[in-house]
Design a protein around this nucleic acid. Structure first.
Lengths: 342, 342
DNA sequence: CGGATGCTTGACAGCGCTTTCAAAATCTGG
DNA sequence: CCAGATTTTGAAAGCGCTGTCAAGCATCCG
């Protein structure tokens, strides 16, 4: 393990004081051309790399942005993290991630880790730590919240209700009237909003809401599969499904496939999120796009602005219906019960 | 922005010296029970959280493990990162990620960022920074490489050749003889090994290798789609496809779907990786599982051991054929040309 | 040509913590 | 009860860097 080259090594090599080296590195003050040259050459010669930690300690900041996600391997968070990473690229800041696994205690632990590591700002994606906890943290550092609405904090998010509304409306326009909904966990505000959007779209089309057509899932593929099986088992009649996220739509699709029910021939399917894999799904999934990378990007830019005391108005984040091949015009009404016979 | 509580604040509050506080926090030396009590109470009262950065600076380490991936949002790397995260949980170390985007220059930049941030150890996943560069880095800190074989370094990886062999063998056992291969980029050693496994399996079954049945992709979905179109366009005859990874298999599946070629009825499809979404694919994808989380986990444990000067022999990482519903016995030979007419 | 003005530069303290070293406190046993 | 061994404790230096401050220098103008 080789000894690290420090700033004073460079100073000695260049025949100047450490302060001067610091100045040429950071451009904090003007330095005579000749000395600057000498310093740069010394840096080159010694392969000097500044120690960001020491810099951070001296400046009272870490040049690090903490990001709390729920599950780093989830494609949904992956997209947002990518956006954060991109936004921070080229700045002196770097993200550091910690996962809450949808559990308050783990989220709290993740928060503690990030605080101990002196993050300069915090991006919180979803989760369920108490509002007060985040508000309290916001006294210490800039905090931006994605996917939750917390009074007094900078919040970023999409209009879930509107997105769901459009997804369902699309099905209605295709002639569907018996539309099942695989909802997200009732503990998630976004799941509730999507359910509201679903109901609103039905209502506006004068289609009565049928509770038997709604099954609650947990946003994971498996629960989508189970939901369809439950629907089928209880003899529910439907010609379309609106899933509260793509992953549950994937699961639903498998369940339908196993029963020989074809998408979109027999049943139309709409998801929510537009994960990267959804366009390569078979059939390519019609879904309500949520701009994952943009959400991460805006959150990061906002933190950066907050950190520099600048003003920044994040671009509005809107959902967009992406029509692919998992939805089709309803067939003759006879089809409606067809799969019940299966 | 509130002032942070420091160790000396605690010391003052508890009426002891900073050294003593440090000692009770780290358990580095025995402290009289009464003083320990006082310190703990003070910590409690002041809500003190140690500053890991300062600790790191003082100890000459950062308690941080750098991880270079190619793309953080890729499901493949996501799985490995999850493993790393889990392995580090409960230790004093925390991972910090940087992405190379499959470009040497960006990878080098990522490396520089991590080095500047004084990571104590480095996990490199794939990529193409020169071997010498990594060997040089290994003089400075422990390095473990996943998915590449670099002389002198700790390397972790699966037997790509064997994995591919088993995937192709499975198809052969189902009666397929004209098996197309969507290969990975020729610059990736693992892609080459998988191609070799493909050829070896054919050879062992006395099936002549037909270069016209091989198309090179780039591991992304789109290239799988394009590959199948190319195959079809050039009139290639095949009843099965072995894709060098799941993502390209997804793309291939869409291309087949668009042409009305059914999987597995008309063409069987095998992937490689077993991404989480593959079991919810339609049809659920037969694939060669690569133990993503385990790879990340072992890499992290190995680094940890290296850091502590312990010995650690990583568990062997092996691939496993997962047979799902995208492969089937070959149909009558007449089917072979069927989709050519499409 | 001398004093005033404006730049460039180095010394030094300090960021929050660890760790060595030696002094202070406590404990032995003769 | 005291010398000596042992343990507990605090003072102080230092990790690599920044940033203030004042000294050093060149330049300018009357």
């Amino acid at each position: 393990m080789r000894e690290a080259v420090t700033l004073s090594d460079v100073a000695r090599e260049a025949g100047v004081s450490p302060s001067t080296v610091s100045r040429v590195i950071n451009g904090t003050a003007r330095v005579a051309a000749s000395k600057r040259e000498a310093v740069l050459r010394a840096i080159e010669r010694l392969h000097y790399r500044p120690n960001i930690l020491a810099k951070g300690l001296a400046q009272g900041r870490s040049l690090t942005i903490g990001v709390i996600t729920q599950e780093i391997s989830s494609p949904y968070y992956g997209e947002m993290l990518k956006g954060v990473e991109q936004a921070l690229e080229g700045t002196t800041y770097h993200p550091i991630f910690a996962s809450g696994h949808w559990r308050v205690d783990q989220e709290e632990a993740a928060l503690k880790v990030l605080v101990s590591r002196q993050v300069d700002g915090l991006i919180v994606m979803d989760g369920s730590v108490p509002e007060e906890r985040l508000q309290e943290l916001a006294h210490t550092m800039p905090v931006v919240v994605v996917g939750r609405k917390i009074p007094g904090l900078q919040c970023l998010g999409i209009d879930n209700r509107q997105g769901a509304y459009e997804g369902v409306q699309h099905l209605i326009e295709l002639g569907h009237r018996r539309i099942a909904h695989i909802a997200g966990p009732t503990s998630h505000p976004d799941a509730i909003e999507r359910l509201e959007g679903y109901r609103a779209a039905l209502e506006d089309a004068h289609i009565p809401f049928d509770p038997a057509l709604v099954v609650v899932g947990d946003y994971m593929e498996q629960s989508g599969l189970l939901a369809v099986e439950a629907l089928l088992a209880r003899g529910a009649l439907f010609t379309a499904i609106f899933a509260a996220n793509d992953q549950m739509a994937y699961g639903a699709n498998v369940a339908l496939y196993r029963r020989g029910i074809r998408v979109p021939h027999d049943v139309s399917l709409v998801g929510f999120d537009d994960l990267p894999s959804s366009s390569y799904f078979t059939p390519p999934l019609t879904t309500v796009r949520q701009p994952g990378p943009a959400m991460g990007w805006e959150a990061a830019r906002l933190i950066l602005a907050l950190l520099e005391g600048r003003d920044y108005t994040p671009k509005p984040l809107s959902t967009q219906l992406v029509v692919r091949e998992s939805t089709a015009l309803i067939r003759s009404s006879g089809a409606l019960a067809a799969h019940l016979l299966t």
